[in-house]
Design a protein around this nucleic acid. Structure first.
Lengths: 246, 246
DNA sequence: ACTATCAGGTTGTCAGACAGGTTGCCGACA
DNA sequence: TGTCGGCAACCTGTCTGACAACCTGATAGT
């Protein structure tokens, strides 16, 4: 009777997490608006039936994002939207096809910019590294077992390399955030794509053209090729049947 | 003796904030690496000379970002970079010219994408709204007193409108995050620009061309015009003398 | 009418406690 | 010697109560 944690993946949310979700939900539904004062910590503790320490942990998370600000002796208030200090995405967005496409549009905008920068800043060693990654992609095609996984990983490596070549750490962080969440979601659903290999071949050639443009040191071409590949890749991803239609 | 809170702006950081800063600093310097186990909460409390609740609030913030993960009975661990769930920027980045330019490149990549989307999704009412914002910009020029401020606000409005037209809430959030932080920094330094009005005139015409492209429903042109304006604006901002050179 | 004072509420921090969970050691047993 | 069971130590998550610093609004006194 080996249950090997099918259940443990859907980990039970902690108490502070639930309170954060409740508060952000109220904020999103408009029940809580910028400038409003939150109930006092003791009041919230009573309302949720938890200790004040739990409420404090929840509020401290919201403060960390600049969603609420608190003043000693007065209370905690919902901050103005422009006061936010972090960008974060609800995991639910990665399930809905429309939302996923919008997120990918964001990501691709960033990727395209750094691709152009990379075309300016690239060194010979960078080119060697990128071409090695392309080679890994090509090899992954013939791996019937873990080919998709290896290809996915190589794509990730290529973007990371491009961002590093462009010397833009923030872009790398941003791209990794979105890619990480997408990968998380893809892992949790069945990863089956009948036309995988032929799509992969197309994708690799697109990326090869991108690397070529970077190698030539042509920012405009790099932009074009990056747009071509990553917009296509976004569409291919969104076309997958395992995403909910909304 | 009216001191009107010159000091209170540089608010003293709270204890949990300091611990977060210390831990993220250690992470950034490589003293703490993904997979490492953090000292236990009591150990950290002793080390920092604070109560465990303070340490817990700090760690709860890091958990919220997916920077650390904790397991009952075991401890707290530094998560893998791809496990992050939030994008956040150190305020220091907005002071250094190089970093600021990189952040603006990010932002502009996103803006350019949504501008193209807006050119597809725009309605007549959207156009009216955008042209009204352009008009406000032109009027702001003759306001010698608060002209710069009004112009800045109108620019912000235009971007927000474009993002809303493109129906991309995430892009709006992302742009607002970066703009908000930049505005925060600009407010704290002297805002003086001798050539302000002539630069503003140029900027307004750039944006007018962008709105025109959106009005025509031409995504490619919208992209070009958006790139032209926002790249120029980034350069103009970075040219300001009140930024540290690094 | 104006001002000084004060009581009550609120956040920030501290100290201690306990439940539930995990790890690793250590001894019993085969 | 090798294996297994149990136990002690430790860790996180939560709860409780307390106190200092602070702000607000009412109250009382002038």
């Amino acid at each position: 009777m080996i249950n090997l944690k099918v259940k443990s993946l859907e980990r039970s949310p902690s108490l502070p997490e639930e309170i954060v979700a409740s508060l952000t939900g109220a904020l999103h539904k408009g029940e809580l608006r910028p400038g409003d004062r939150l109930p006092s910590e003791t009041a919230l503790a009573n309302e949720f039936g938890v200790a004040r320490t739990v409420v404090r942990e929840a509020i401290s998370q919201l403060k960390y994002d600049g969603v609420v600000q608190s003043r000693v002796g007065v209370g905690a208030f919902i901050a103005q939207p422009q006061e936010r200090t972090a960008f974060r995405i609800s995991p639910a967005c990665f399930q809905k096809r429309r939302e996923l496409l919008k997120l990918l549009r964001l990501r691709n905008g960033v990727v395209i910019e750094v691709a152009a920068d990379a075309a300016v800043a690239r060194s010979n060693r960078d080119i060697v590294r990128m071409e090695a990654i392309l080679k890994q992609m090509r090899e992954a095609i013939s791996d019937r077992e873990r080919g998709a996984e290896r290809h996915f990983e190589a794509e990730r490596q290529l973007i990371h390399t491009i961002a590093k070549v462009a010397d833009n750490e923030h872009a790398l962080n941003f791209i990794m955030l979105i890619d990480g969440q997408i990968a998380e979601k893809l892992r949790s659903v069945a990863v089956k794509n009948t036309k995988a290999t032929e799509l992969a071949t197309v994708a690799i050639e697109e990326q090869a053209r991108l690397v070529e443009a970077i190698k030539r040191g042509d920012p405009a071409a790099a932009r074009d090729k990056a747009r071509e590949h990553y917009d296509n890749a976004a569409q291919r991803l969104a076309d997958r049947a395992d995403l909910a239609d909304v």
